[in-house]
Design a protein around this nucleic acid. Structure first.
Length: 837
RNA sequence: GCGAGAGUGGCGAAACUGGCAGACGCGCUGGACUUAGGAUCCAGUGGGCCGCAAGCCCUUGGGGGUUCGACUCCCCCCUCUCGCACCA
């Protein structure tokens, strides 16, 4: 460990205090300035922040401070996604109430974020577990209920035995719980759903209208929504007039290849088709066998497809032929109609099943490469397909659909993979669902004037089965809002993803009591201009927030169609090749880092080591290097204060970046060009791709150049010129580095004699005069290999550059005049002499 | 299997629309200042031939191609990461 560090501890504490006293980052709607809403995903108050948070918030803070210096009115809020399971688990393990545990964690983490010096408007802090917050989502729930966007039904859900609660499809990863990694089991249960499927089409359509989102995330969302276009039609059951089996297919062109049909084992029609008790028993056994498989076994890669042939047969309406009917585990009740026509020739799953059960395979698309050992799913000419023969796949699809529609046998249909969002959780620490069940009236929503339905404080949390709220008599027993009779409150709480689906709107007017948010404030600030967070929310949170925003729009509450204009998906922080985790023992604690090297160093490293969207490889030596760099700036400025402190040397302009002294010497002009080129580079790096790593390296280069200039300039120019340029260089370094390392730069800015905060300064503009070059180095290649360099006037005539290149001594060693085939001149860049070989 | 992204020194990484590959930082080597240096400053640092230097050759996962010129564009292959995973 090095000694001799700049006093980061004092200056970081000092400026955090001053910024807070000045309320420097508090903002209000100001219609005279363009707004910029910069948002990082708010954290769950788990206890302490980790390096991923540091990175996330450092990235956001660079942008917020930069945009502010650029003249934007920047909203940069922070809050807490405070409901959730860990609080309840802490209650079970340590007997501490979730509310207390959460409040303590928030207090600690808030202090940590303050120590990082992030420019939040803390006056807008939001805590989703407070009734003032969740009451509005209860109100919206009731409005969604009125519109059929919230509904209750019994269904087979994903049940996490460890969390003792239901999970949405989006919360199941690889058959396991997204939070605790336990294996998820199916369970039949009554619960509340949000009708996200009603917005499937719009959510999908907007995926192509959000250019500020990463392609990757949009692809994941599109796949998740999973639109597929096809046709639904009936297969008559043989020998049972009037009985029909409805199937869905995206390949109506292949109907002539249908050699059997399959029902999902749970399909309700199966029971009606039983011939006798023997078959009934066989079906029951098959169903039991399927049910015994876990989700994981069921989705394993090359699992054989199992099925049972039924005695009933169905008729292919196109051919009039009877074909066998099966139940099989590879057909899912939850998609389409839960029944399919099987076309083994053009579908690999059907192919596998047909092979295993000795069923015929018909080729209905001519295969370009002949009969391979698998299904063919490509395009081609229809064969063996009656009136479709000779058509392309697309033409045949259309014609087959027309044929079905004309006869009233089926109709076109779009299906989505997306399912409605199950929001009921059998947990305590969440927002109560504001409905009651009355003995007389049935399900009744709570009256709006009775909101919020406050989560009771006095609850026994055992972690054993069912909703803890069910045991709280004072909560459960209530009067029916409609008839005043005896009623029981809903004891499930809402999925915590509901709270995070609108918190960005609440930030616009966090203390507003007249509604979810104040319309004027939301109209001013929304949408979020830049959202920043981890890729793990690519589908979950980001899809829910998009959906919820559209619901609020349709309720007339907001005007925006989409909540987030642009999204930056930041990479993970890894160390020794693995994600930081306690179990791997590779965790770097932000507290330790802040204590030993300071917040500015911690921030700088997370910004410098990799571009934001890539994973960041933690390296203790690299952190040291960042600390060294800041020390280097500190030493230089403090060491030169006598020369460059205010009052400014005569002739120096007040505004940084404005020419004060015109350098009279070549080294002076060259250095000034370096200064202003750095402004250009840093600005472009921030604007273009948030490539903060290269922005930082450009600033490092300027600091290195300043050190070199300081030495070289001792005797090379008038002292005034040297001092003026040093002052200009340092001011530019501080201004450019400010958003990255706000404390040290603010302190040195003040030490230079400035009264006003660095973060009230405009972002420096490059001086065009300083950027002018008279000469430029041009590379000379022979046959594409660099053989020399030439210093020429900028925009020198091509002919002259060509002549001088050919005349170059080194070049001549490689080429004689008679062998030159061609000379390529790229102005101000290079000359390539191509020889006859 | 399908979809998306990536492969560059000892390491993290640069290289905008094809135009000096390896900026910046780490690490390493040498020097200066020092009682000392794990502080600081200065210099060097892709590999090879070579005592040094000049100079030359090679080098962006592999193989082909387009081009005066390819990390960048096209085709084939390999490896890795992430997402989806029987969605009909």
């Amino acid at each position: 460990m090095s000694t001799d560090r700049y006093p980061f501890r004092e200056i970081e504490a000092k400026w955090q205090r001053i910024w807070e006293e000045r309320k420097q980052f508090q903002v209000t709607e100001d219609r005279t300035r363009p707004k910029f809403y910069c948002l990082e995903m708010f954290p769950y108050p788990s206890g302490r922040i980790h390096m991923g948070h540091v990175r996330n918030y450092a990235i956001g803070d660079v942008l917020a401070r930069y945009k502010s210096m650029r003249g934007f009115n920047v909203l940069h809020p922070m809050g807490w996604d405070a409901f959730g399971l860990p609080a309840e688990n802490a209650a079970i393990e340590h007997g501490v109430h979730p509310a207390i545990w959460t409040a303590e964690n928030i207090a600690y983490m808030r202090a940590q974020l303050r120590q990082l010096g992030i420019s939040y408007d803390w006056s807008r802090e939001v805590n989703t577990s407070e009734p003032e917050y969740y009451r509005w989502e209860q109100l919206i729930f009731i409005k969604m209920l009125e519109r059929g966007l919230a509904y209750r039904r019994r269904s087979t859900v994903n049940w996490c035995p460890s969390c003792q609660t239901v999970l949405a499809n989006e919360q199941v990863e690889d058959g396991r719980c997204w939070r605790c990694d336990s294996e998820v089991v199916p369970r039949d249960i009554e619960g509340w759903f949000f009708k996200i499927t009603a917005y499937a089409e719009e959510l999908l359509a907007w995926c192509d209208r959000l250019p500020g989102w990463p392609e990757r995330v949009m692809t994941m969302q599109k796949n998740w929504i999973g639109r597929s276009e096809g046709v639904e039609f009936d297969l008559p059951v043989a020998g049972r007039p009037g009985r029909r089996l409805r199937v869905f297919t995206t390949r109506p062109d292949t109907v002539f290849g249908m050699t059997y049909a399959v029902l999902a084992p749970e399909h309700p029609m199966v029971d009606e088709l039983m011939a006798d008790e023997r078959e009934r028993a066989a079906v029951a056994a098959f169903r039991a066998e399927v049910a015994r498989q876990s989700e994981i076994e069921r989705t394993a890669a090359d699992r054989p497809k199992r099925g049972l042939r039924l005695s009933a047969r169905v008729i292919n309406p196109f051919t009039g032929q009877e074909i066998p009917l099966f139940i099989a585990d590879y057909v899912l009740m939850g998609y389409g109609t839960g029944a399919i026509m099987a076309v083994p020739g053009e579908d690999q799953r059907d192919w596998d099943f047909a092979r295993a059960h000795g069923l015929p395979i018909v080729e209905t698309v001519r295969r370009p490469d002949g009969w391979t050992g698998e299904a063919y799913t490509g395009d081609g000419t229809k064969i063996n397909s009656g009136f479709l023969d000779g058509l392309t796949v697309a033409e045949a699809k259309r014609k087959a659909i027309d044929w079905l529609v004309e006869r009233g046998l089926g109709e076109p249909r779009v299906n989505y993979r997306l399912r409605d969002w199950g929001i009921s959780r059998q947990r305590y620490w969440g927002a109560p669902i504001p409905v009651l069940y009355c003995d007389r009236c049935g399900m009744v929503p709570e009256k709006e004037e009775n909101l919020p339905v406050v989560l009771p404080r006095d609850v026994q949390i055992s972690g054993k089965g069912g909703s803890p709220l069910a045991d709280v008599a004072s909560f459960v027993n209530a009067a029916c809002p409609r008839c005043g009779g005896r009623a029981r409150r809903e004891t499930d709480t809402m999925d915590t993803f509901v709270e995070s689906s609108w918190y960005f709107l609440r930030y616009c007017s966090p203390r507003y009591e007249g509604g979810m948010f104040e319309p004027g404030a939301a109209d001013y600030w929304m949408p979020v201009d830049q959202y920043i967070g981890g890729i793990e929310h690519a589908v979950l949170h980001l899809l829910y927030a998009r959906f919820y925003t559209k619901v609020l729009r349709d309720l007339g509450l907001t005007k925006v169609d989409e909540p987030f204009v642009a999204l930056l998906s930041q990479g993970m922080v890894i160390k020794d090749g693995a994600k930081m985790s306690k179990s791997k023992g590779n965790v770097v604690d932000p507290d330790d880092l802040i204590r030993t090297l300071g917040a500015d160093t911690a921030r700088l490293f997370t910004l410098f080591a990799a571009p934001p969207e890539k994973d960041l490889d933690w390296n203790d030596h690299g952190v040291e290097g960042c600390s060294r760099f800041l020390n280097r700036i500190w030493r230089f400025v403090v060491g030169h204060l006598d020369e460059i402190r205010d009052p400014a040397p005569p002739g120096l302009a007040d505004r940084p970046g404005r020419p004060g002294v015109w350098p009279s010497t070549d080294p002076g002009r060259a250095f000034r060009r370096t200064i202003h080129e750095t402004i250009v580079r840093v600005t472009e790096d921030i604007e273009r791709d948030f490539h903060f790593n290269t922005a930082v390296s450009a600033i490092m280069e300027l600091v290195n150049a300043t050190y070199a200039f300081d030495q070289a300039a001792q005797d090379a120019m008038p002292a005034e010129e040297r001092r003026a340029l040093l002052r200009e260089a340092i001011e530019i370094v501080l201004l450019l580095l400010g958003p990255f390392c706000p404390h040290i730069t603010e302190e040195l800015w003040a030490q230079l004699g400035h009264r006003e905060s660095l973060f009230r300064q405009p972002w420096p503009e490059p001086d065009p005069a300083a950027l002018v070059r008279s000469e430029i180095t041009v590379v000379v290649q022979v046959d594409g290999k660099v053989r020399g360099r030439l210093t020429v006037d900028v925009d020198a005539p091509e002919e002259e550059v060509r002549r001088r290149a050919l005349a170059d001594r080194r070049v001549q060693a490689w080429v004689s005049a008679d062998r030159v085939a061609r000379v390529v001149v790229v102005p101000n860049r290079l000359v390539n002499i191509v020889t006859r070989r």
